Structures are given as structure tokens and as C-alpha cells.
Amino acid sequence: MSRRRAVAWIVVVTLAVCAASALTTETVFRADSDSMSPTIEVGDVLVAARHRGGGPGRGDVVVFTDPGGWGERVAGLLGREDTPSTFVKRVIGLPGERVACCTAGGALTVDGEPLAEDYREAGDELASVLAFDRTVPAGSVFVLGDARAASIDSRYLGSVPITSLIGTLQFVVPLGG
């Protein structure tokens, strides 16, 4: 790690921790997966605003705790020794909506309408190699990683209860990749 990068890391983490502690409405995380690439890279520092009632909107990037069984299944599927307990994904479907994949052009649909996903990697034609058609339960959200091929998400593990959400991503400090 270069000296400049090390100093930047120390300053950013110190400021983020101070802000999170002082405000108690923000939480700081470090990305440890490439499932949200190119939006978030491994090693990036994430600051999320805690949820205080209500839920996120479509397209929001959320941080959530394991809603039950995600950590063990992800660890098993990826052959990891550690079991993740916190996840970062993008909200695609809201309570009561029908999320499906894919149109003839390879797009996701929400309630039958194609979803524009400008945050995904250019040239990534298919929104998912796994076909699915799910209705999001009340009190839950349907989440996907931006890097679909590297993400284990609601397609495989189901919707996430809003009560499991820690917060919505406010900003990313790019220290990864």
C-alpha cells in the first residue's frame, strides 16, 4: 500500500468512525466481496445511514444483517471458512411487486415493466443467467448484486425482511481494487 493511500485510509476511517459515533445514524463497513462491482470494489469503505422506519426505494444500495441462513449458505457455496453476517446489495423489488427475469432482450422486469439498470457493468447483456419470477412478500425487499455472476442474492436465498436492513448506502470511499 502506498504512503498516500495509507494516509487517506486512516483519515477516511477516522472521520467516518467519528461521524458514525457522534451521529449514531451512520454505520461504517468495509466491502469484502466483489458482488457489487463496479459500484463497490473489495476494500472500499462504505458509510450507510441507519434506517429509522419506512423502507428503502428501488435502486438503493442497502446494508443488512443475515436474515437467517444467508451466511451459512454463502459460505458453503463459495467454500469460505468465515461466515458473513452482513451483506450489501441493491434493492430491485419492493413489497408486493413481481420481479422476473428476463425479457427477450435480457432485462429484469418489475410488475411487467423492463428495469433500466445503468449501474451494471457495460457489456453485461443478461440481467441474470438464472431465470426467476418472484413476488416480494409484504415487509420485505428483493435484492441483487450489481455483478450478477459474482452475487448470491434474492434469486437464490429469497427476499430480505425490512427489519434486517441496517441502512442505505450514503457514500463509498474507493480504497479497493
Rank of each mutant, 00 (worst) to 15 (best):
E125S: 10
E72M: 02
P114D: 04
S128T: 12
A122D: 13
L144S: 05
L157R: 10
P137S: 04
D66P: 01
P95R: 00
V28C: 04
T25D: 08
G139T: 11
G79D: 10
S140E: 15
K89Y: 05
L23R: 07
R50W: 00
I10N: 09
G79H: 04
R98L: 06
G112C: 08
P84A: 08
A19Q: 03
V88Q: 00
R80Q: 13
G53R: 03
V141W: 04
I10P: 00
A147Q: 14
S21K: 06
G59F: 02
A138Q: 15
G177C: 02
E113I: 07
S35A: 13
T135W: 03
T86R: 14
Y119Q: 09
E97S: 06
D133S: 13
T135M: 11
G139N: 12
L165A: 01
P56L: 06
T14W: 05
A138L: 12
A8G: 07
P67Y: 05
A131L: 14
L46A: 09
G105I: 00
I92N: 00
A20L: 10
T103Y: 09
V63K: 01
P161R: 09
L175M: 14
S37W: 13
R3T: 12
H51Y: 13
D124Q: 14
L23Y: 04
A19W: 13
V62N: 06
A138S: 15
T135E: 14
V136W: 07
L175R: 07
A122Q: 13
V11H: 03
R30H: 05
W70S: 04
V47N: 01
G96P: 10
C18L: 15
L77A: 14
I10Y: 12
S21I: 09
G59K: 02
A8K: 15
L115E: 12
W9A: 14
